[in-house]
């Protein structure tokens, strides 16, 4: 909770112009942390709420002041585009910050490539927490608590709902006897791994206890049958994704919500914003189902 709060504050600092952030960002984060510690030590929820509200006001007013100040200098030097973009980032940051503070949405950053193709490393996404597990459909994206470490939140795609029969043959998903043609899937390796690509037929390798339980109790005629109250999920970057094939089902109670949009995407390798992914809506793309 604490670390998440400091992270959110660090993200919100993008509301300030780049020079201001570079010069004072670290000190501002330190000051924010110290004040939060003092307020926390007092132990009054009301004071904590007042402090967060005051900080939000401080952010909105002072960041627009600093943006205006830096805009004056950029407009005068003819860099109108830079100024407009700067203001856009400030507005966006504040909007996202305010939305993410509601119980309906939550912001996450994608640190891995397991969904590459659909969701990139460095995507900052908002998740719609109003979507409950029983509203999820097949092929929807889903965020959930990782069963092996519930502190972590994962994002994958719903492949099987309760009652669905699932198996993989040579990397192809067969669901209820129909082969899925999944446009969103990418494969990084060409070789066929006996377990990963012919699941659940192949001999299990590196499968934790929860996965072994699934193999022991939920396999009928070489197919997984998804039990009641659970989801079977797979990553889109299928060859490198650790998913239900390895650690088993996601209990419905662990579903956090459905990813809604990418509000910002940062390419750390090239240190630049991916503008074409910013404000990109994450819709489900249903695969074609064909007879095998």
């Amino acid at each position: 909770m604490k670390a998440a709060l400091f992270r959110v504050y660090a993200i919100l600092l993008y509301a300030y112009p780049r020079e201001f952030r570079a010069r004072f960002g670290r000190e501002m984060r330190q000051a924010f942390r110290e004040r939060w510690r003092t307020v926390r030590a007092a132990g009054q929820p009301r004071q904590q709420a007042e402090f967060l509200l005051a900080t939000a006001k401080d952010l909105i007013f002072s960041s627009s002041n600093e943006r205006m100040a830096s805009m004056k200098s950029t407009i005068l030097s003819g860099r109108l585009w830079t100024a407009a973009r700067g203001l856009g980032i400030a507005a966006l940051t504040i909007l996202v910050g305010m939305l993410a503070a509601t119980p309906f949405l939550q912001a996450f950053v994608i640190p891995t490539m397991s969904m590459e193709g659909s969701i990139e490393q460095g995507d900052h996404i908002l998740v719609n927490k109003m979507v409950h597990a029983d509203q999820l459909k097949r092929d929807d994206l889903v965020t959930f608590r990782y069963p092996e470490d519930r502190e972590q939140t994962f994002i994958k795609r719903v492949i099987g709902l309760p009652g669905d029969h699932i198996r993989l043959i040579d990397k192809q998903v067969i669901r209820n006897g129909r082969r899925l043609v999944e446009p969103y899937v990418s494969h990084q390796t060409s070789y066929v791994d006996a377990y990963r690509d012919n699941f659940p037929a192949g001999p299990p390798a590196h499968v934790p206890q929860s996965g072994l339980d699934m193999l022991a109790h939920n396999v009928v005629n070489g197919e997984i049958i998804v039990p009641a109250g659970a989801l079977f999920v797979l990553g889109d970057n299928r060859d490198i994704s650790l998913d239900s094939r390895y650690w088993g089902f996601v209990p419905r109670a662990d579903v956090v919500g459905r990813p809604l949009l990418v509000y910002w995407s940062y390419d750390a390798q090239h240190s630049e914003t991916r503008w074409n992914r910013t404000l990109h809506m994450l819709a489900s793309a249903p695969p074609a189902e064909v007879e095998p």
Binding site: T55, D58, L59, S62
Partner: peptide
């Protein structure tokens, strides 16, 4: 008078 970090560092600048 409780200044937030943004207001404070704006003044400092």
């Amino acid at each position: 008078l409780k200044m937030g970090p943004g207001t404070l560092y704006g003044c400092i600048k």
